[in-house]
Write a protein that binds this DNA or RNA. Sequence first.
DNA 1: TAAAGCATGTAAGAGGTTACATGATTGG
DNA 2: CCAATCATGTAACCTCTTACATGCTTTA
Lengths: 190, 190
Amino acid sequence: MLDFAILGILTDGPMHGYELKRVLADSEHGFWTVSFGSLYPALRRLEKQGFVSVGTGGGSRRKVYQLTPEGKAYFQEMLEEPGSTDEERAFTLKLAFFRYLDPDSRIGVLERRRAHLTSRLAESRKSMKDSANRTKRRMDDYTLALINRSMQSTEADIAWLDELIENERAARRPRKPRRARGTTPEPNEI
Amino acid sequence: MLDFAILGILTDGPMHGYELKRVLADSEHGFWTVSFGSLYPALRRLEKQGFVSVGTGGGSRRKVYQLTPEGKAYFQEMLEEPGSTDEERAFTLKLAFFRYLDPDSRIGVLERRRAHLTSRLAESRKSMKDSANRTKRRMDDYTLALINRSMQSTEADIAWLDELIENERAARRPRKPRRARGTTPEPNEI
DNA sequence: TAAAGCATGTAAGAGGTTACATGATTGG
DNA sequence: CCAATCATGTAACCTCTTACATGCTTTA
């Protein structure tokens, strides 16, 4: 996960550790204030795996990390590969690096996310109905408020994803205005 | 965190490990599908600390865990104590167990959460302005969409908290209808 | 020249996960 | 009686955190 974020940031160009920490903490990557005890070992790991190469930054003490071709390939894999343990963070990061993903794959990522949220919503609804039926002990108001807010938020997320998906589709059929019903079809469509 | 959830669930009555796992996975506690490799060591830990006591559940193989007075006290502490590493989950759990928190402390918890979200929102806005000013490299549309959606969701959360806070306040002044402006004040208000 | 901030790192440990192992109990 | 599910546990590992240690570089 952290590896993914590091590789993504290094795609824009070489950078040293301290700077990476700062960039990660920017809103662009979801305020991930990672600690040095996490960052430096991660960089070492990536170096050992051959995904980044280190160079000294012009005589100073800074170590500048640069993406290798293998690192680039690995990053591309992670961009497309569905899922991980921390779905939320993984999706946030993917979206932050969406410009590096080829347009054909973008819709797939968005739709997998949409499916995930939809099924979560369905589970929520089901579990609320179940709990309403077995009247033994109904939820208290706080729990109810929590679940309702969570469902409301998920619904908004889905609507937001739909927008993104629609935008993406619109970009894939550039300025081909929809033909009115009944007009002559293109020859190859007959 | 897991300890907190376990103690909270056991407040309702004794339960054995396997059942705890199921209850945790319910929507009431935010779908926390915890693994056995995490749950059983946690129970052992709580037992060693004297927060739960084990008893065999009627000759069967099940181990039934029960809250001790120390466990109850510790749980109450965690309900009030502000913050932890994972703010989101901590707040969700606190709300799920809000009925066990004395009404006087509830508003405090809600307002701390509100303050936290408000400052997060302010940071977001600031970092967006900053990035708009240093025109060097403006954010791409995906990143922008992400941040906007996040801010929108946080705003909704704050509004939702305001509702909860208002409800809580209303409950603390029971059926004392608001006096119209200009009417005689209570003697002790002069 | 001292303080503030830059820069890299290590050690210990918290708190989870997956995968594995084992055996009891229940239902078709 | 066999499969599914109940029930408990261990071992190895992963990822990240906190706290500590060290020394360089800029600036007031």
